[in-house]
Simulated assay, not measured.
Amino acid sequence: SLALLHNGHLLTNIRYLTANSSHPATIRLAKQRVRCRDCSRWSMAQSELASKYCSISNASKLKILSALTEDRSMTSIASENNVSVNTVQRVLGSCSHRFLDSHEYLPAHLAFDEFKGVDRQLHFICLDGDSHQVVQILRTRYKKNLLKYFGRFSPQARANVRTVTMDLSFYYQDIVRACFPNVQIVIDRFHMIQMLTRSFNSLRVKVMNKRSRQYQLLKFPWKLYL
């Protein structure tokens, strides 16, 4: 410590959490600069408030990461936290190390779905059916891209997959049968109930439009039937 020479402070504006996005909160952080007398190298003190070379607080990043788990657009998340959409995308990208980076293993139970992301485009998401942890998120859900991604895994890893849960789309079923030899396709119960509800409601409306004797019976207690 005796070889370090203090050389002032560097003031940095750190964006912090705020309850009202119209009144952004900024913390002025004074970082101590020091110079080594032996090697003449400069260094800067670091703080747990924000990462190195970053003006966004770690608390704000955690809030953005929590909002990304909800059914919301990146634009609304960026506006709420007074950051840009690119910052939200970088926070999401910083979690990529949590995804599978090895092509020698796949969980025995997978779940496929899509969600609406940047520019209202549909992105592909794959989950572990047991732990509900994210296996991978792809920017597109095109068939050729999904076949290319799962084709990178070894035959042993793809043979380890036993079930894949999805909606009623035949689009994913073709991909699953092409990639996983020992798989059993499971249809999500939510989509099954949704299909039955829509079919029943369509039949109810069709009978009502005929002005039949059952019109009054099907019109007012419709919530009870559904």
Rank of each mutant, 00 (worst) to 15 (best):
L127E: 06
A30R: 10
K63S: 02
D128Q: 03
E114D: 10
M195S: 00
K52E: 12
K31C: 12
F200I: 13
A50K: 01
L127S: 07
V207L: 11
T140D: 13
Y149T: 07
S73Y: 03
Q216C: 05
H191Q: 05
F99Y: 15
Y215C: 09
L11P: 11
Y142A: 13
N7R: 06
V85M: 02
Y215N: 06
Q156R: 03
K144V: 03
R98K: 15
H123M: 13
Q216I: 10
T26F: 02
T26C: 01
R28H: 13
A59T: 01
A159T: 00
F115Y: 08
D188E: 12
Q194Y: 06
L146S: 07
A67Y: 15
A50W: 03
Q121D: 14
C39D: 11
R152P: 01
Q173R: 10
E114S: 07
R90Y: 00
S66L: 01
N182D: 12
G93Q: 12
K31E: 09
Y225I: 15
H9G: 08
I137W: 02
T163V: 09
R37G: 10
H23M: 12
I175G: 15
L100N: 14
S102E: 11
C39R: 14
D101T: 14
L218P: 09
I193K: 12
Y149M: 14
Q89C: 10
S40N: 14
L168W: 03
A59S: 11
V186W: 06
L146D: 10
Q194A: 03
A157C: 04
R41Q: 09
Q173H: 02
I193H: 14
S73C: 04
Q184W: 12
G117H: 03
Y172H: 14
L224M: 09
C54M: 00
V183L: 08
A159D: 05
I125Y: 04
F180P: 15
H109W: 05
M195K: 00
K219G: 07
Q32G: 02
R98I: 12
W222Y: 14
M166E: 11
F124A: 04
R198G: 00
I64P: 01
R90T: 06
K144F: 09
T75Y: 00
Q216D: 14
